[in-house]
Design a protein around this nucleic acid. Structure first.
Lengths: 207, 207
DNA sequence: CCCTTGTGAATGAATCTCCATTCACTCAGG
DNA sequence: CCTGAGTGAATGGAGATTCATTCACAAGGG
């Protein structure tokens, strides 16, 4: 599906995907016209349908393929970390850094993924789950190594980590304020996640 | 704006808003037809335009008015907490609990707010910022009381807290798995935020 | 007390615009 | 010549919005 390959290599298909990222990130999926994407890709409207089943398929292919690259990349990078804490730090820094390297892609994924996951029939964001798996893997490793709390609920924690990162990158995208700059934010978030909000030594409430 | 009040009280306007929550949460803003909302509200298509400028205005009014109630409510509840830690716990529990009380509303806000914030011209989600302010207020208080780290970056932390909550509620909405049940999740998240991921006493990496 | 008339909320069929998708056609390379 | 990638004008359907009309009710007059 969506893997027809009319043209020799796939430069045309790729031009379309890149154009789609640009347009979707600028106007959102529903406000983007296929013909705009075609124009941006310097391709005829009809050509898009040689490579993608329809507009939805274009979005989904974009998610899966681009996220796929992101996942592969972050896996490579975190593997270089010595222990779980370092890997987590790398993961967080990498995520925030994506904003600078691939802001369009991040915008599309962040703003459209929820919609699509919910409303596109039979679409499971496989690559997104893999991204979450990278986090779980790190957390599990940390527990094994004994640096992370052994009673940590990994299912919940990985979502919490992702959610915090996601919201923070969104904030930077929307506001562009220096106080949310990826570097600042990544450092602060690391500290927050690892040490918590509490004053060192405080007993963290009843319960 | 969107405050015309043809009818005596506002029951009709209210019926429309409630119907909009139902339909938008079920199909998403762009896939919902105005006529469906009309049908669900047991009102003629045209009637909706007596109370709202257009479909966008309906969504925005829904956000602002419903979020307004949520903010007022959580303010009241957290005020009952003795100290900042307790207030934070109340805030988190309340947020997760909203899922049970007002799942439709939560779904609409979570799934559509990003889109709308980004793509509706001149819409600033005022009430959403107020919700974030509730978090900041608690964090600031905690710093003053000395229970939270005095070097905490509140701007970043409040977004992190919100992001984690948001992702976790989304997860429950999508999966409905008991392991993400609001009660479980709220407790785990409190612990995570207050104490962090690390083994008690660990030095949390080089920084 | 009944009828006439004015008002504006409510209606919903008709309109009008927009855009995804199609497909008959072109043409370059083999 | 074929073949099939590529084209882009034409099509079809959808759905937001409008507006001529209806209807319930209130006020005033006989």
């Amino acid at each position: 599906m969506s893997r027809k390959g009319p043209n020799n290599g796939g430069e045309k298909r790729d031009r379309i995907l890149r154009a789609a990222v640009k347009i979707f990130s600028r106007k959102g999926f529903f406000n983007s016209k296929v013909s705009e994407i075609a124009r941006a890709a310097e391709v005829a409207d009809g050509t898009i349908y040689l490579y993608f089943r329809n507009k939805d398929d274009l979005l989904i292919s974009l998610f899966e393929e681009k996220m796929g690259e992101v996942v592969a990349d972050v896996r490579r990078r975190t593997a270089a970390g010595g222990n779980a804490l370092e890997k987590l730090r790398i993961f967080i820094e990498n995520h925030m850094d994506l904003l600078e390297r691939e802001s369009g892609l991040v915008e599309v994924i962040q703003v459209e993924l929820r919609q699509s996951t919910k409303f596109l029939k039979d679409y499971t964001p496989v690559k997104f789950f893999e991204y979450l798996d990278v986090i779980s893997d790190i957390l599990e490793e940390g527990k094994r190594e004994g640096v992370l709390r052994s009673d940590l609920n990994v299912s919940v924690a990985r979502r919490a980590v992702f959610g915090a990162l996601d919201e923070l990158s969104l904030t930077y995208i929307f506001t562009r304020k220096p106080k949310y700059h990826p570097t600042v934010t990544a450092a602060e978030l690391c500290r927050l996640l690892l040490e918590g909000l509490c004053m060192p030594g405080a007993s963290a409430g009843k319960g």
